[in-house]
Design a protein around this nucleic acid. Sequence first.
DNA 1: TACACATTTTGAACGTGTTCAAGAATCAGT
DNA 2: ACTGATTCTTGAACACGTTCAAAATGTGTA
Lengths: 218, 218
Amino acid sequence: MATKSEQTRQLVADVALKMFRELGFEKTTMRAIAEGAGVSVGNAYYYFASKDELVQELYLQVQAEHAVRAQQATDGIHDLSGRLKAVLHAGLDVMAPYHQFGADFIATAIRPTSPVNPFSEGSTAAREASLAIFRAAVDGSMPPAPKKLRAELPELFWLGYMGIALFWVYDKSDGQMRTRRLVDGAVPLIARGLSLAKIPGVSKVLDDVLGLARSIRG
Amino acid sequence: MATKSEQTRQLVADVALKMFRELGFEKTTMRAIAEGAGVSVGNAYYYFASKDELVQELYLQVQAEHAVRAQQATDGIHDLSGRLKAVLHAGLDVMAPYHQFGADFIATAIRPTSPVNPFSEGSTAAREASLAIFRAAVDGSMPPAPKKLRAELPELFWLGYMGIALFWVYDKSDGQMRTRRLVDGAVPLIARGLSLAKIPGVSKVLDDVLGLARSIRG
DNA sequence: TACACATTTTGAACGTGTTCAAGAATCAGT
DNA sequence: ACTGATTCTTGAACACGTTCAAAATGTGTA
């Protein structure tokens, strides 16, 4: 059984996540979390060094849930387009309860100093986990993706997913259906776009793009 | 001559921008701004409803400066690639003094509620001004850009510019030279990519992409 | 000049995230 | 069971962004 310490930590996290969902980021104060969990403010800080770390807790949970659902949703689907669509919709499903929270989450996440920042070194593990979801979608596809791009695609799709999340945050339509339509419309186009990679002229430009990306990254 | 009121407002803004540049966003407290300007905290709030509005002041100034410099830098350059490169580098030049400030600026700007948010309705004017810079770069180019894309290019480039700004924020290299190299490397590729639009297969996919963009926007 | 009204300025006060010295509870080794 | 060290918990305190009633100053009118 869990130690007392682990119980307290979990309790604080649970209360915080529930409040984030129901009240949003700003109305969820550290004092309210502490009171809701029946502990002192200082005690909450003993387990989470900042409010941002509680946001990270949410991020990790959402991501873990995404991994599970993406796995289920892609089961039995073999074409890349279908698999990608399933993964993206699974992501939107998991994020849905947090839509009003999204803006503050992204504002937090985008700071280089934030533990949640997806590009920062601190969250390499989290980013890898998220990338793995897209890698699985690509690697498991039949027919396989163009060889030249296969290694780069997961990262590209992940980046696209970040963009979709940003779009989703600003999407005020009912149930964020515009984002859903964007996914449904864009994914087949991406799949078709990939087939263009075989055209010699396109292929050459693509090589240079990939080369540039590598040189900038290193 | 300016009224006393205008002088005070300008003084507060000047002190704030100077502090933003020299100390960054967090260390520039409203109390410090007020003290530096020789007014009370409440008085600063009489002219600027929030700290964010002072950030907006900075945003407007940077943008105005960008417009001027882009104009100068593209003068006499006719090819699209050269013009785009000049505009982007002009943007980086203007932003340079604020690099350490960049992260907080973007975190502020990305909130839908922020007056600085580039997508929000409140800053339509500011966005239009920024878009106009890219429109001028496209419209003034010789040979002209592909007709099919000409109307969409400014918005696309502007979006790319937002992406570059994001990259720049995270760029810890000396003088952000990686961002400079990214611009130098990416711009010619974009120009070459545009010429692919004439290939029938590519053109068809492109039409669908543009159609999707329009349907989502509306 | 004297008065009424509008504009500008003040500084104390509020609620926030966060820190920290101090104390309470728990544990490990004898 | 005792003791010393470690882990956990507390709540007052700090600096921050922001608000607001009240005061001070400015402006136009009789």
